[in-house]
Amino acid sequence: MSDDIGQKNIKLVRKLALVAIAMFGFGYALVPLYDVLCDLTGLNGKVEGQAVQETAYQMDKNREVTVEFLTSLNESTPMLFRSEVKSMKVHPGEYYTVNFYAKNTTNKPMIAQAIPSITPGLAAEFFKKTQCFCFTEQTFAANEEKTMPVRFVVEPALPERYKTVTLAYTFFDNTNISKK
């Protein structure tokens, strides 16, 4: 092999190796890209992690939307977790409060985080909460039971085709991670 080709090979290998490294970075870049895409499209029913200011809406008494509440626990989270009601009919623009109950069933203190999700995903941006236990981590004493209110409103701008909106919470036991 002549040195000429050897030089060309080294140049090309450098370029291709750079592409491979860049693609490794691209894999990681997909993480923030995905979050941006979720915000834009409402993919996966991700909702805002912060409370919104309570603002008055034009109430729509003629329209009813069913809001369902789902509670679940991540694998082996030692808790009891339920909502006051399974579902309720709401008028868009009106504020409602619904209670959730969670109990630490262990003899040790626990730090837990609830993660909300809304189905259908595109309805998520019209579902606003002014108060929620999911905004921060919750600390439970041993065997403590808590009543946790959620105050929410379904915005009148919610497209007509959505008749039912499901709000799901999953509690994760973060005790080991949060202590560090």
């Binding site: 291709l16 592409v19 491979a20 490294i21 860049a22 693609m23 490794f24 970075g25 691209f26 894999g27 990681y28 997909l30």
Partner: peptide, 10 residues
């Protein structure tokens, strides 16, 4: 070259 690094990242 385009995909194996992405899998390695994942």
């Amino acid at each position: 070259i385009a995909i194996m690094p992405v899998f390695a990242g994942a």
